[in-house]
Write a protein that binds this DNA or RNA. Structure first.
Length: 278
DNA sequence: AAAGTGCTCAACCGCCGGAAT
DNA sequence: GATTCCGGCGGTTGAGCACTT
């Protein structure tokens, strides 16, 4: 028996959803919950395939969907997460509460992707002709946002399974005077991860990740190479291991990895987890 | 005002991994 | 272990709208 087609096209509605269909779907999911998408249309009385129902619910009807313009902070986060994760839209969306993978993917493909491509050499390693003022502006904007080379995969791409963000880290207010007393520069890279380590229970911060799996994926050849690299003269590279054992704990190893490879981007901000502010 | 062009974004498609049988 | 089913993902499409000529 062969694999049956995902959606039988006979007699099913296609294209844009009507408000009536939306109401039926929303009411049904509210009562019966998500899941069982294949059987849902029949049980709910919708002439749609299950996949279409699932998509409509997740991208449009689901409570908490944030609609409207993507803010500057969100845009910045998308760019940095994309640099880290690649086209893992669901994973990126998981770090942006209220945003869907489809929305972020569209936003990237229509705006950010073009802007990144418009960045001149040596920032993206591509030959780009900046003949239009608009392109120059976009490139300049991204250049300012890019502490490290955009478009180049500077670090190993982490490929954990995509999960939705269930907890948002909102850091406690930090007293700038207290920071001054401690000679801590507000929002310094050095301080950023220390903030996480001090303020966050690692088990909560990584609640959405399968840490063991994440680590197993980090421990590939590239990651080991990154860990073994000697520090560079300009201090832009990865720090050495100081002779310490590689495997301390999942949390310490992740933090040590990011501390070495990612501190230029990782900052703590309001309501985002983590906020990769410029 | 009309035609052409570009942009946005909801929806579709095909593939894949994991669970169930 | 093999097969089937289901949900999830990323890539792509195309209708509708906005802007330009």
């Amino acid at each position: 028996m062969g694999r049956r087609p995902p959606c039988s096209k006979d007699g099913l509605n296609r294209g844009a959803w009507s408000s009536h269909e939306d109401k039926i779907l929303a009411d049904y999911v509210k009562v019966h919950g998500e899941g069982k998408w294949t059987d849902l249309p029949k049980r709910a009385g919708l002439k749609r395939c299950g996949k279409s129902c699932r998509l409509r619910w997740l991208n449009y009807l689901r409570p908490g969907i944030k609609r409207g313009n993507i803010s500057h902070e969100e845009e910045d986060l998308i760019i940095r997460l994309h640099k880290l994760l690649g086209n893992r839209w669901s994973l990126i969306a998981g770090r942006l509460p209220g945003r869907t993978d489809n929305e972020i993917k569209n936003y990237w493909n229509t705006k950010l992707g073009k802007e990144v491509k418009a960045i001149p050499e040596p920032f993206n390693g591509e030959k780009v002709l900046q003949s239009k003022p608009k392109e120059r502006k976009a490139a300049a904007s991204l250049k300012a946002k890019a502490p490290i080379e955009l478009g180049k995969q500077s670090h190993p791409v982490i490929r954990p399974k995509a999960v939705r963000c269930t907890q948002v880290y909102i850091p406690p207010h930090r007293d700038d005077h207290k920071m001054a007393d401690q000679n801590l520069e507000p929002h310094s890279n050095e301080h950023a991860l220390e903030s996480i380590l001090e303020d966050v229970d690692p088990s909560k911060f990584f609640v959405d990740f399968d840490v063991e799996k994440l680590l197993s994926e980090l421990y590939d050849d590239d990651f080991l190479q990154v860990c073994m690299d000697e520090p560079r003269e300009d201090n832009s590279g990865v720090r050495g291991l100081d002779g310490r054992s590689m495997m301390l704990s999942p949390w310490s190893e992740i933090s040590r990895h990011f501390h070495g490879a990612m501190p230029e981007e990782w900052r703590i901000g309001d309501g985002l987890q983590p906020n990769l502010a410029p």
